[in-house]
């Protein structure tokens, strides 16, 4: 539970030198902020500009002069946006569910219980993390093909359904629960499952938020693997749909393209902003290490 910030006294002093340093700091921060969210704001602004408005060049303004949702209407008319969104959400729900349930169970057994095979399991996790996805995707594709799962959601979901890193995160989280808490529950006669649900799960809330956000983002963002597995357009996720949109003739109007990509970014931003407090807390408490 380390506190990330240092004492504020250091910079918020009274002397003019400190004030000047503070102003410089804010100036630098604002400059970097412009770089990090500038492209996103430009994207939003462009998507809201009407047909008559310039996007580039000298006469282009940063804010739309005549905001309209025409580009959004075009995107939904010309491309099955709603279908892509639905498909992306299905992938995210499948992934988040399996990434929450199974790593939690496995992490508990790894950290709290002694059993035959525990050490072997731990090393299997470590070894599996040595292989970057791109270096094993040829084999993964062949395996999915042999299972008859090409061009299906399950085929996209299965290889990444349980990430070793999430098992390790949950293992570290449960290991940090003091023994005394569990002993008290044992004396009360609570069975193993009850202790797991009543004591361990609530203690892991911070890490679970990190796992949920990370796996949601990963599933929403994923491109290469669904691109390999999915063939028919009815199954396309938003990322695939966007790439397709950019290759189509509609991409001649950047407003439409920007509207499409705003749609891809907004849900995930909303999720993140809603959970960010817990997220940064979870990260600070060591879920990331």
């Amino acid at each position: 539970m380390s506190i990330v910030e240092r004492s504020p006294r250091r910079t918020v002093g009274r002397s003019p030198r400190r004030t000047r340093a503070l102003i410089v700091r804010y100036a630098i921060l604002t400059g970097i902020l412009a770089i990090s969210i500038g492209p996103l704001l430009w994207q939003l602004s462009s998507s809201l500009k009407g047909q008559g408005e310039a996007l580039f060049g000298t006469e282009a303004t940063f804010l739309p002069q005549d905001p309209s949702f025409a580009a959004y209407a075009t995107v939904f008319e010309q491309v099955p946006m709603a279908l892509y969104i639905r498909n992306s959400l299905i992938m995210c729900l499948l992934t988040v569910a399996s990434q929450v349930v199974f790593p939690t169970l496995a992490g508990y057994m790894l950290s709290r219980r002694q059993w035959r095979g525990r050490t072997v399991f731990y090393w299997l996790l470590i070894v599996s993390m040595m292989f970057p996805f791109e270096s094993i995707m040829v084999s993964l594709y062949m395996q999915i093909r042999d299972l008859g799962l090409v061009n299906s959601f399950v085929g996209v979901w299965l290889p990444g359904a349980i990430a070793a890193v999430n098992v390790l995160i949950m293992r570290a989280t449960f290991a940090a629960v003091p023994d005394e808490v569990e002993e008290a529950a044992m004396l009360d006669g609570a069975g193993e499952w009850r202790r797991f649900v009543r004591i361990y799960l609530p203690a892991a809330r911070g890490s679970l938020v990190v796992v949920v956000i990370n796996s949601f983002i990963a599933a929403w963002d994923d491109f290469l693997w669904p691109f390999i597995v999915l063939r028919s357009e009815e199954l396309y996720t938003l990322s695939l749909g966007l790439a397709r949109l950019s290759a189509s003739s509609l991409s001649f109007d950047p407003r439409v393209l920007m509207a499409g990509s705003v749609i891809a970014i907004v849900p995930i931003m909303v999720l993140f902003i809603a959970l960010q407090k817990h997220f940064f807390k979870g990260v600070e408490s060591g879920a990331i290490k």
Partner: peptide
């Protein structure tokens, strides 16, 4: 730059983190 808690620092931290959250295909199109 953001380690010291000065007023508004949460806003800057979130802003710097925003590109991480955005989808790669979408921002690549931008």
């Amino acid at each position: 730059l953001v380690v010291t808690r000065i007023p508004g620092i949460g806003f800057f931290r979130t802003g710097f983190y925003a590109p991480v959250v955005a989808s790669m295909v979408a921002v690549a199109l931008v």
